[in-house]
Design a binder for these strands. Structure first.
Lengths: 135, 135
DNA sequence: CTGCATCCAACGGGATACTG
DNA sequence: CAGTATCCCGTTGGATGCAG
């Protein structure tokens, strides 16, 4: 996704409400960017229960490829959401844990979960109605 | 998703592949899917203040293309988050408003915004540290 | 076990010209 | 005004194979 709001030519004429919209949306867009990867949330949730190993994640998250698991883990680590601990054993062992910041985020996400559960069917209904009427 | 062949544009029909992760992540992943498009949040925020017209959105959301605006609007409408009202005037006038469901979502998103603002710098710091140590 | 490298297909998304 | 239709390219992500 890599949005980063810096790729928008500044234009500097930002007046009135245009500015407002952008200002208000920005931080939100940032979070989304950090969490909206196809697998980020899954990893965050899986790691929320305690230290998780690479292979555990691979099995827990249905359908993820090795490559994407690595990439997503790196991104989350870079963002300061995951902590990576390497045990120099043979064979190697690596554990991932949520940082405090990420734990907070995880709780915050719960309100979103609630919303999703409250409206899950509403959304499905809306989609069906849309598809049948406009298609 | 986009069934045809070569360069047929995406169709943005949402409902990508089901993300079967751990049961706890599922509803959350759903929300993310509906909101995580590059422009969805921006549109939602812009429309949160009241009815908005197509061109208003185009100007309010810095950098969006006409195509993406249309696609994203259609997706949000399909998901039951936006309501589209057409005034059969000349020239045509179309207004978009948040549905009740979407208003709820918008409020819920505020807690995410708060998190983002609280940790915005933490994230930047983490990224810099990561980039300097591993690079 | 953990994870990087490579190849490749599919999709997202920008620019723009055209229409009701 | 509010879209729709094309063209085109950069990125995402799956599949594999190799390595510490």
């Amino acid at each position: 996704m890599s949005r980063s709001h810096t790729d928008v030519p500044v234009e500097a004429n930002g007046t009135s409400e245009i500015r407002d919209v952008i200002e208000e949306a920005c931080p939100l867009a940032e979070v989304i960017d950090h969490v909206a990867g196809k697998w980020s949330v899954g990893i965050l949730v899986a790691a929320a229960r305690g230290p998780v190993r690479f292979t555990e994640l691979e099995r827990a998250i249905n359908g993820i490829s090795r490559r994407m698991l690595t990439l997503t883990l790196r991104k989350l680590e870079r963002d300061g959401l995951l902590h990576r601990t390497v045990y120099p054993t043979v064979p190697p062992k690596v554990e991932y844990t949520l940082t405090d910041m990420a734990k907070e985020l995880h709780e915050t996400l719960r309100s979103l979960t609630d919303w999703a559960e409250r409206h899950r069917t509403d959304i499905t209904v809306a989609q069906n109605r849309y598809d049948t009427t406009k298609r």
